[in-house]
């Protein structure tokens, strides 16, 4: 299990990287943290002729607040996000999910941008961006475009990124008041990709009824699945076990997940309903408790 031969570039700027990608297109692969790509190389399941390593590019590694958004640079290590007090405060959903991504050695190296651009439908980060309605910041030869997750994640391990484009950052809306979040997942073992994961955000109005609710699921489709229709019914209702159960039922019923050797389609469908209810319940408790 040794990687195949490739040529290796270390651009010093985004512009240099874009020039290389523009030149080599489909024959090039971007190396960020490498925690998904290098295993594929070692198995020889990916065989790019050119590897464009972003690790030498400055200014892609940041976590900051900008105009009501939490902005995170694509090359920010997952571990840095996990440790960030700003993330815990402004985006508790992300903070809750971080420790569930792989293991510490993976998060020490793995990047936010790498995980999003890899677009594994079982991964946590795409679902979080989808649940929160975040934005993906993409740079190409003609400048920057900002994409919504539903346009960015287009299929299994597939994004709307052109071969000559780079994901340079992600923006997540900062937490609103009276909003609770929860990320729950079931995996075969701790640290494995979830069989199903649910990211939930629930905002209450002053009277304690649901003002807004958002849900995204991992592991149940080729991309993160946003359950907008199912959550819409919550608006105006007081949070209740029955209401969350009903949302779970509706979510479950719309899904047609694939079977694999770890879980059947039927099981995933069922689990999506259970975890939806659990995530919403926890999010509602947190919204009431003010802990995010």
């Amino acid at each position: 299990m040794k990687p195949p031969p490739f040529e290796y570039f270390t651009p010093a700027s985004v512009e240099d990287a874009l020039a290389l990608l523009g030149e080599h297109r489909e024959q090039a692969k971007v190396l960020a943290g490498g925690q998904s790509l290098v295993p594929l190389l070692n198995f020889r399941l990916a065989r790019p002729r050119y590897l464009v390593d972003l690790n030498g590019i400055p200014h892609l590694d940041y976590i900051r607040e900008e105009d009501g958004w939490l902005a995170i640079g694509a090359m920010t290590r997952q571990r840095a996000v996990e440790r960030s007090a700003l993330v815990r405060d402004r985006c508790p959903l992300l903070a809750e999910a971080m420790p569930q991504i792989g293991h510490v050695q993976i998060r020490n190296r793995g990047t936010i941008g790498g995980s999003l651009a890899h677009a594994d439908p079982a991964a946590e980060l795409p679902a979080i961006v989808a649940a929160l309605g975040g934005r993906l910041v993409v740079r190409g030869p003609d400048g920057e475009r900002v994409m919504a997750p539903e346009r960015f994640f287009v299929g299994y391990l597939t994004t709307a990124l052109e071969p000559f484009e780079l994901l340079v950052g992600v923006r997540l809306p900062v937490r609103r008041s009276r909003t609770g979040h929860a990320f729950v997942e079931v995996s075969r073992r701790h640290g494995d990709f979830a069989l199903v994961g649910v990211a939930a955000a629930l905002t209450l109005d002053a009277a304690g009824a649901c003002a807004d609710a958002a849900l995204a699921l991992t592991g149940v489709g080729p991309t993160p699945v946003v359950a907008a229709a199912a959550t819409r019914v919550l608006v105006g209702q007081r949070p209740s076990a029955e209401a969350f159960q009903e949302v779970g039922r509706r979510v479950s019923e719309t899904l047609e997940p694939d079977s694999d050797l770890h879980a059947s389609s039927e099981y995933r469908k069922h689990l999506a309903g259970v975890l939806t209810r659990r995530a919403l319940t926890r999010a509602a408790e947190r919204a009431r408790g003010g802990e995010g």
Binding site: M1, K2, Y8, G34, Q35, V38, P39, N42, F43, D53, N55, R79, H103, V104, Q105, I106, N108, R109
Partner: peptide
């Protein structure tokens, strides 16, 4: 050699990482 078992863990600049998932040139 695919980043799961952790046997190849080394410390790079103070952080534990999988040495099978890094290229020496990095």
């Amino acid at each position: 050699e695919h980043g799961v078992c952790g046997a190849c863990t080394v410390v790079v600049n103070g952080e534990a990482v999988r040495s099978c998932l890094l290229f020496a040139v990095q």
